[in-house]
């Protein structure tokens, strides 16, 4: 893996080539991924990989330290009845909860991701966004999930969006930056592709579909389009970018379809939580239920899986 820091050339957003996207063609392609049949060992292995890619998330106005602590415990103890389960990749919280979360997961592989830049709307001036980000970092965040200024993007101010991402990346330093496009507000796949390219060239380590506050969120079509942007960038530069679909992925089946897509577009190298994440809260339990079904032969009621 090459470091992102080698990239020093000056890029202007007007110079980024974003191919046009044909929605009908994308739908057809996605349907092919969905028709893949994942059975037996590959299903079990896939489910465990997916479990390990989850960013367990709580992003509500009513979040409390207690709620966050419980979620962190769950992140480390998904289902202790089963001895061989991985933990999730990270917990994702508001900046105000970062310190609490960090204290809970310190010394483990679970990272703390913080949303920032006036999440979810992003409607704040740049200096506020920088301070928001800096605060989260100071509190101990390992990863920053920023939102782009969708209003500016839709009014064609691409350079503004580009510069803002670059500034936040600068603030992040070593912390990995996930850039949320909020694709539900971008409305077309052409826009999704353009925003993906802007984010990647401006310094994103990860591109992420949604805040989870807007529908539709991480549809397969949108994730496919973003994965293709990552692939094109990798083919051009040899630099890997991560992908995080977030919002709406709540079933094992959908998670496996996403993995199929990642595998067939980007290859097995992306099949770790270093390069692929699911932003989700209810997905973990559905996967746990499927794993237990595969190993015991029977479905257990949801009462047997904790809901932290």
């Amino acid at each position: 893996m090459k470091s992102k820091l080698v990239k020093k050339e000056i890029i202007h957003s007007d110079n980024i080539f974003s191919p046009s996207i044909d929605k009908v063609g994308v739908e057809e392609r996605v349907a092919r991924f969905q028709s893949r049949s994942i059975k037996n060992e590959s299903k079990l292995q896939g489910l465990k990989i997916a479990l390990n890619m989850i960013d367990l998330t709580t992003l509500e106005g009513k979040d409390t330290p207690g709620k966050v602590k419980q979620m962190c415990y769950k992140a480390l103890h998904l289902h202790d009845v089963h001895p061989n389960l991985p933990s999730v990749a990270a917990v994702c919280v508001y900046p105000s909860m970062v310190r609490i979360a960090k204290n809970e997961v310190r010394g483990t592989t679970v990272k703390v991701a913080s949303v920032s830049t006036a999440f979810p709307s992003g409607q704040a001036p740049l200096d506020v966004k920088i301070r928001d980000t800096q605060f989260a970092l100071d509190e101990g965040a390992d990863e920053i999930d920023m939102v782009i200024s969708r209003g500016k993007f839709l009014s064609g101010e691409y350079n503004f969006v580009f510069d803002e991402i670059a500034k936040i990346k600068e603030t992040c330093g070593k912390a990995r930056l996930k850039v949320i496009l909020e694709t539900g507000e971008l409305t077309t796949l052409d826009n999704v592709r353009k925003a993906s390219d802007i984010a990647i060239y401006a310094g994103a380590d990860f591109i992420k579909t949604s805040t989870g506050k807007i529908q539709p969120a991480a549809t397969m079509q949108v994730t496919y389009t973003m994965l293709m942007a990552i692939k094109d960038y990798y083919d051009k530069t040899g630099i890997m970018i991560g992908m995080k679909p977030a919002g709406g992925i709540s079933t094992s089946k959908l998670a496996l379809h996403n993995l199929v897509m990642v595998k067939e577009i980007l290859g097995n190298a992306w099949l770790t939580n270093e390069w692929f994440r699911f932003g989700a809260s209810s997905l973990a339990n559905d996967i746990l239920m499927q794993i237990m079904k595969m190993e015991t032969g029977v479905y257990q009621s949801s009462d047997y899986f904790s809901i932290d």
């Binding site: 893996m1 590959s42 993995l259 290859g267 097995n268 190298a269 770790t272």
Partner: peptide, 16 residues
């Protein structure tokens, strides 16, 4: 053939 198989997880589809 796939690039970068030195990292990542070797996940293949079981016969179906």
């Amino acid at each position: 053939k796939k690039k970068n198989t030195e990292q990542g997880i070797d996940w293949n589809y079981s016969p179906s």
